[in-house]
Computed example of a mutant assay.
Amino acid sequence: MHRGTRKQRRLHRVVMLGYPQAQILDIVGPLEVFARTARWLRDHHHLQRNAYEIELIAPSPGLLETSGGLALFAARRYTETRRADTLLIAGGIGYAALMQDRKLLQWIRNQASKVERIGSICTGALLLAAAGLLDGKSATTHWDYCDRLAQIATGTRVERDAIYVQSDNLYTSAGVTAGMDMALAMVEADRGKAVALAVAQELVMYLKRPGGQSQFSRHLTAQRRDDVFGNLELWMLDHLDAELTVENLARRAGMSPRHFARLFARRMGMPPAAYVRRLRVEQARSRIESGAARAKRVARECGFADEQSMRRAFRLLLGVTPTEYRARFAGDA
């Protein structure tokens, strides 16, 4: 407790690495969370000094044009950075130009061993991967770049549905606004849930969307697949309470069960049974988030044999039970 109190009294420096054609909200969103927390603590806890200090750095000092056309000012080059406790790497289409910058990647690698924690927003995770920091870790990025991340960081478990992922002192988040969810999680770790909740309320946000909450709508994703599997998935989403066996799905797709299972796994990234289980868990999770009262009814409507089957599936995919998920979501919201 004494050590924690001393840590809270110390100024915590949050440094964001931006660059030309970075996404502006990837930069200002998380930094606003820390800045607003510092102001809230001054106003409500009567702190005499800021709890957080924020700084934007870049490959070159001066104005950097973001991908939306607005320019931000970085007072310092990254090599001139003073002490950082939290180092964040912004995302945006400009990340590709930095992937071959060996000096920058080496600097990121060196900083990772010095800072209290390091994190990325959106495609910033690809820079962490290029710096060799994601090997043996779990990580996420914007859903449209997950395949790219998996290709670069072959030793990384890519969490494709996650809003943000914490793996030891390394944080990665999905696209754009997810960086603010990640920043709130960091504030909660530093200052406790009550402070993070108060800041979230001031920012008109949830305290946090659960780390495993899906980044995107399955219905929209299925509609983008203009083929037999896209049409099949749309049908599955509307009939999760049906008997979705390989044989029944293959019959609907007009294929033999063996050929269907092989093509499905290649196209969708997992066997049919695992995919059906994921769809059912996502639907059940959505029902719980919307306030569905009875677990038995949720299990039946989402196609689980019983509550215990749903419980096991939640444990496997989310690491929590439906009851724990309900309590977490209610507390966060």
Rank of each mutant, 00 (worst) to 15 (best):
L25E: 01
I27S: 02
I27W: 00
V28F: 01
P30Q: 03
L31V: 03
E32R: 10
A35Q: 10
A35E: 10
R36H: 06
T37N: 12
W40T: 07
D43G: 08
H44C: 13
Y52K: 11
E53D: 15
L56Q: 04
L56Y: 09
I57C: 07
P59E: 13
P59M: 13
P61L: 10
G62M: 10
G62V: 11
L63D: 11
L64H: 04
E65M: 12
E65D: 05
E65F: 04
S67F: 04
G68F: 12
G69Q: 12
F73G: 00
A74Y: 03
A74G: 04
A75T: 07
Y78T: 00
Y78F: 12
E80Y: 02
E80Q: 12
T81P: 00
T81I: 01
R83D: 11
D85L: 04
T86M: 08
L87M: 08
L87N: 05
L88M: 10
L88I: 03
L88Q: 03
G91L: 07
G91S: 09
G91D: 06
G94Y: 05
G94D: 04
A96K: 14
A97L: 13
Q100Y: 14
D101L: 12
K103H: 14
L104S: 13
Q106Y: 09
Q106R: 15
I108S: 11
I108R: 09
R109N: 12
N110L: 14
N110W: 07
Q111N: 09
A112S: 15
S113T: 15
E116W: 14
E116N: 14
E116K: 15
G119F: 11
I121G: 05
I121R: 10
I121W: 09
I121V: 15
C122R: 10
A129I: 09
A130R: 13
A131N: 05
L133R: 01
L134D: 05
D135M: 03
D135L: 03
G136L: 07
G136M: 03
K137E: 10
A139T: 08
T140Q: 01
T141L: 00
H142E: 00
H142K: 01
W143G: 00
D144Q: 07
D144L: 04
Y145R: 02
Y145N: 05
Y145M: 03
Y145F: 08
Y145L: 04
C146L: 00
D147T: 05
D147I: 02
L149G: 00
L149M: 01
A150I: 00
Q151V: 00
A153L: 01
T154M: 03
T156I: 05
R157N: 04
R160I: 05
D161H: 04
D161M: 05
I163F: 03
Y164C: 06
V165A: 06
V165Q: 05
V165L: 04
Q166G: 02
Q166F: 04
Q166K: 12
